[in-house]
Design a protein around this nucleic acid. Sequence first.
DNA 1: CCGGCACCTTGGAACGTTCCAAGCCCACTT
DNA 2: AAGTGGGCTTGGAACGTTCCAAGGTGCCGG
Lengths: 336, 336
Amino acid sequence: MAKRNAPTILDVAERAGVSKSLVSLVMRESPNVSEDKRRAVLEAARELGYRPNAAARSLVRQRTYLIGVMVSDFGNPFFSDLLEGVEEAALLAGYRALFNTGSRLPAREVSAVDTLLQLRTDGIVLASPRFEDRELAKIPRSVPAVVVGKNTGAAGIDVVMNDDHHGSDLMVEHLVRLGHRRIAHLHAVPGAGAAARLEGFISAMTARGLDPMVVEGGFTEAAGVAGARALLDLDPRPTAVFAANDVAAMGVMRVLESAGMRIPEDISLAGYDNVDFASLEHIGLTTVDQPRRQIGTMAVELLLERINGSRSRRRRVTVEPTLIERTTTGPPPPSD
Amino acid sequence: MAKRNAPTILDVAERAGVSKSLVSLVMRESPNVSEDKRRAVLEAARELGYRPNAAARSLVRQRTYLIGVMVSDFGNPFFSDLLEGVEEAALLAGYRALFNTGSRLPAREVSAVDTLLQLRTDGIVLASPRFEDRELAKIPRSVPAVVVGKNTGAAGIDVVMNDDHHGSDLMVEHLVRLGHRRIAHLHAVPGAGAAARLEGFISAMTARGLDPMVVEGGFTEAAGVAGARALLDLDPRPTAVFAANDVAAMGVMRVLESAGMRIPEDISLAGYDNVDFASLEHIGLTTVDQPRRQIGTMAVELLLERINGSRSRRRRVTVEPTLIERTTTGPPPPSD
DNA sequence: CCGGCACCTTGGAACGTTCCAAGCCCACTT
DNA sequence: AAGTGGGCTTGGAACGTTCCAAGGTGCCGG
């Protein structure tokens, strides 16, 4: 028997013996209220368990102080730090972050965004949306929006991206410095960011006068397994493998190990993303880290610029990845 | 220059040449509307990009059809499936799920819950709240609430729990069946669910006439490392180690390997939780799986029972874990 | 003693919906 | 021809806030 009716500002006003306007003033921490009335109101509010109704408030203010975030997939560990970044930056600016998910289904994602729009959040962050750009382009007509974890050409939408091109370059640089010359990239055909990683790999290799070896893979462990099999057939074999992401690298690792090769003594292996398990000492995967938290805070900053009206031109920001050197990479075998 | 003013029901009414009430009827898919007016309204709404204002709606309906979820930590992979379960069940019942986080800080968690309360969500799911029960107990006064991923005695709050006691029993059963008699449990002193796992381990062992070996560990890789060192000092050494969770098991794995022991030939290792990396073939950790998705859907069902007023008595539900047998467990060495 | 001013307090309008009671229209019955 | 009823449509009240203009009160200076 939960009492469904929450106390309103009028209940508080009556109990404290003041007008509703005064209660409103106290709740918004206005300085123009006498100390005794303030205390009386606060006391009454506490006794009644009063809590302002966000709906009524947003209706008259025409502002919600809410940032909505549509996350395509809560299961993707890449997002967790990013979301914390959003939360952090929103809080700092006096906003609250509210999250939503489409469970990886485009239609549901659209409906999740719709929920956010109906709530009239002051801005929307879209984390790797999977629906079409056509749908995307409608959003900024009603509210400032920014896409992260994916690129988009949709008009009126800001973008925060990791510089995948540069990330690949960092990795090639690292491997070359160790002495590798035959480096293979296992790329993820249609995956988000995969194209830029591949392209970065190719240009990094050719810029150093090396021949880029490329094998098709994907972003899953199974794809890594398949790719690794293809790798072993290459002649000459590469001395280092750079997978499109950490999960695929794990598939590669398994195949290499069961083929009797030692990592990194016989062959070096690297991934991309620096997911949590990459740092387990049992794995110790060398990889490229994206500043995920920063991507989140940056997204909020872009939103705030638009909310405050200080910008209306489209902006796309890239953040710099860093190399994380662990134990799966080392010098090539002496014979090479 | 995003136009801040979204079209209202009145704009649609004017454009379609009908009253606002009729528009409202169409939006709510009432059957008592003539086909031509319905089309006219829908057309006008589409042209204007009209979207109902959730705040105004919730104000008069006294219902939001929203389920709020406070997640203590988006980074905990345990939650992702759980959240999908919540989303799924909410959608099925005509509700939308909205997520929130406290970034592991008790004070922030309280404020995240407050945001949900101000929004007047029709129910609240608390995923492993870290704040005190005193604070928890206030929530059900305003709205139905259920806690998951943690136990609580707070009045008026429902609970959905994994049966950790049974999970330990499953694991002991598995190891004993393989032939192990000296089994050690690495327990996590104050962690959520740790007490039940330890207790389950002890009673499972004694019920089989075996001596429970217990070493202090924790839920982190470092704790696993420390615990594993203590394990190696035991005399006689255990032939199997059951860690409090998968992450700690990874710490154990590393120590055992660098001590030159093979898993599972020389010693068996198991974890708890079945996190994503446990299934990587390079790891292949035997573990206990909690039906995370089911925990999420169950939580929503409990909420709905209260929302519909069909129950007001407190309910606590436990869900059954299952054993996931992989490659880190096997028969003890023949000498034993 | 009055006016002015600062400070505090107040009622009413507005925000965008839903709900309700009532109205209109037309076909059908008697 | 009038009455009845059903199908469709409508205006106004209500939801719980904030904002605004205006009202009080008390003190100070002239």
